[in-house]
């Protein structure tokens, strides 16, 4: 047996029956601009894998935010629009209302979705727009250099809270996902992560549901994906993931918050 394995060449191994992982064709060849260790790349890949598996490339329209993922359209090989800061859910509304057969999603960070775009977020959810919102929460403004986000934890340091977030001065970290789950217009609300293999698999399932549910026309699917920001948090990637488990996820617990009622 051992002798046989030694004789295998790479041509012998690279066979279709041995394939365990393949890169989705719907990610372009552009090199990600994201920092090493950042979760955006995984989140991008999962969304494109789902679009590919559901065979809806010709019906998918994505909306990029302002923030680290402002250039998301450089990586996703689908038609995309770039929104003003916070307005992605309004763009999604305009697209979906005039083209109800499309699969429309927004991809937004915490500052975009839960600070400047709060009104657009709440009202798109409340109207029950049949779109998906992918909400990337890392508790910090990455692109502008690590300022406080609406989701920054109490006592968490950022460049605008250098001594830690003071709740009395800056208010509480906003659990907007729990908030939108209260609205009758949301159909599916969940919080996921992509920092461990198991979490990645669960996140992908959630993303898939968010696409599939659009066909039902029963309301908005809201998928929060908690990711690290090792640059903004000033940590090594591994430490950032550990810190996320120990500090971030206790405040933003993973799992479904609102699931469709079973008949």
């Amino acid at each position: 047996m051992a002798e046989q394995q030694q004789q295998l060449t790479s041509e012998d191994i690279i066979q279709e029956e041995n394939l365990v992982f393949d890169r989705t064709q719907l990610l372009t060849d552009n090199v990600f601009h994201y920092c090493p260790g950042c979760g955006h790349g995984v989140a991008h890949r999962l969304i494109m894998e789902v679009v590919e598996e559901l065979e809806v490339q010709d019906k998918a329209i994505g909306i990029a935010p302002v923030g680290c993922s402002v250039l998301a359209y450089n990586y996703m090989d689908i038609d995309m629009q770039e929104a003003a800061h916070g307005r992605a859910p309004a763009l999604a509304t305009g697209i979906k209302r005039t083209m109800p057969d499309k699969y429309v999603f927004t991809y937004q960070g915490d500052g975009d979705l839960a600070a400047i775009g709060t009104a657009e977020t709440i009202h798109a959810c409340n109207r029950g727009e049949n779109v998906a919102i992918f909400f990337i929460n890392n508790g910090i403004y990455g692109m502008t250099g690590g300022q406080m986000a609406p989701t920054t934890l109490e006592k968490m340091k950022s460049s605008t809270t250098p001594y830690g977030r003071n709740i009395k001065q800056m208010g509480n970290p906003l659990k907007i996902t729990e908030l939108v789950a209260e609205l009758p217009g949301t159909y599916y609300v969940t919080r996921q992560a992509v920092h461990k293999p198991g979490a990645v698999r669960k996140a992908k399932k959630a993303i898939k549901k968010a696409f599939e549910y659009q066909k039902l026309e029963k309301g908005l699917s809201f998928v929060e994906i908690v990711i690290n920001c090792n640059s903004g948090w000033k940590m090594e990637p591994v430490d950032a993931n550990k810190w996320m488990d120990e500090n971030f996820l206790p405040y933003y617990p993973l799992g479904d918050i609102k699931v469709p009622e079973k008949k």
Binding site: I61, I63, Q81, A83, A84, R87, A90, L91, A92, T93, G94, I95, R97, T98, M99, A119, E120, I122, H123
Partner: peptide, 20 residues
């Protein structure tokens, strides 16, 4: 009827971007 002028003009952006 949108929730604000901000939202309504951005709904226009989205739909116009799709050639509507």
């Amino acid at each position: 009827q949108a929730e604000s002028e901000l939202a309504s003009i951005n709904m226009i952006y989205g739909a116009a971007g799709s050639g509507k």
